[in-house]
């Protein structure tokens, strides 16, 4: 039975990163010492914060800054006459510190630094409106081998008490070079950027300035240096800063527009990172008569795939 640990409030990311750095070092040491890694186990704990108040002006201002960065239209009233729900990407941002808190625990077996976000899937099951009191939960699950290391899912859930589960996000991270048993047969889940992928005709083009990483870091709290500083990016082997994958996915979600409806599924698979500054060609097209959209984004210059995903209305 998973233990539920209730925290008084959503933690601040700054302090978590300091702990993440420390625990990453600890894990590195541990792995050097033990080297056999078959004993990696996820902490059997769910973090919970109740009474997250979205009626305070800070949250409204935060949402406004988020909207401006990712291009979400100002939330007015839906065609059904209800106040618009906040975008799924904002709920991801809201819950991100709690997921990070799980990942910086001393007993979390993978190093926070160097984790690569490879996939994300989110479901908005009912609209979350500014002003709702929310309960947010996060836990890690499904640690599994991958041909390049190990993958883990960080699950975040947002509940509107009295109404039920409103949002469920699953962020899949890859820890490169971490060995789990039977990695030989492990599948690779990321789309193959070097294979036969041929870009479709674009429907849009994003001109992403050098400051894109810093701009999204400011609204998401994800200040990983690979996104915010050229030196930091170089330290991790990137020639320049890279865009947050979730920024690109959130922008695609925004550009689907009202066709996504009030409740929807939103998925993304990340391939090659977007080096900044960059011009990214994008195709966002209806996926079929059943409704919904698929999207791809790639480098207009080289044709390298950056991400693919889908936005599917639930009703």
């Amino acid at each position: 039975m998973t233990r539920v640990e209730t925290l008084p409030a959503l933690p601040a990311l700054g302090g978590l990163y300091a702990r993440g750095l420390a625990s990453s070092g600890r894990i590195a040491v541990r792995r050097t010492v033990s080297s056999g890694a078959g004993d990696l186990v996820l902490p059997d704990v769910t973090y919970r914060v109740a009474g997250v108040d979205t009626s305070v002006p800070d949250v409204a201002a935060h949402l406004e800054r988020y909207r401006r960065v990712v291009g979400e239209p100002a939330g007015g009233t839906t065609s059904a006459g209800n106040p618009a729900g906040v975008p799924a990407g904002f709920l991801h941002v809201l819950a991100f510190p709690l997921a990070t808190a799980v990942m910086v625990r001393g007993d979390f077996p993978l190093p926070l630094l160097g984790l690569v976000h490879v996939e994300n899937s989110a479901a908005v099951l009912r609209p979350v409106r500014l002003g709702d009191q929310l309960e947010v939960r996060a836990h890690a699950t499904n640690l599994r081998p991958h041909r390049r290391g190990a993958q883990v899912d960080l699950v975040t859930e947002v509940t509107v008490p009295g109404e039920g589960l409103a949002y469920r996000g699953v962020s899949t991270y890859l820890a490169k070079g971490v060995d789990l048993p039977d990695t030989s047969s492990a599948p690779g889940t990321e789309p193959d950027a070097r294979g036969e992928w041929v870009p479709p005709l674009p429907t849009a083009r994003w001109s992403l300035p050098a400051g894109t990483g810093r701009a999204y870091a400011a609204v998401s709290g994800d200040r990983n240096p690979i996104h915010t500083s050229a030196l930091g990016a170089k330290a991790f082997g990137f020639p320049r800063t890279i865009a947050h994958g979730m920024y690109t996915a959130a922008r695609a979600l925004a550009e689907v527009g009202t066709g996504r409806g009030e409740t929807y599924d939103w998925t993304v698979s990340f391939a090659k990172p977007v080096l900044l500054p960059s011009t990214v060609d994008v195709a966002i097209r209806p996926s079929g008569p059943g409704g919904g959209f698929t999207y791809q984004a790639w480098s207009g210059r080289s044709g390298t795939l950056h991400l693919t995903g889908a936005v599917t209305p639930r009703s």
């Binding site: 005709l201 674009p202 429907t203 849009a204 083009r205 994003w206 001109s207 550009e255």
Partner: peptide, 20 residues
């Protein structure tokens, strides 16, 4: 002359239509 909603210039848009 970029379309605000797509970021593609009018010429790039028309190039797509031309190819189609």
């Amino acid at each position: 002359t970029d379309e605000p909603r797509t970021g593609l210039s009018m010429g790039e848009h028309q190039a797509i239509t031309t190819a189609t």
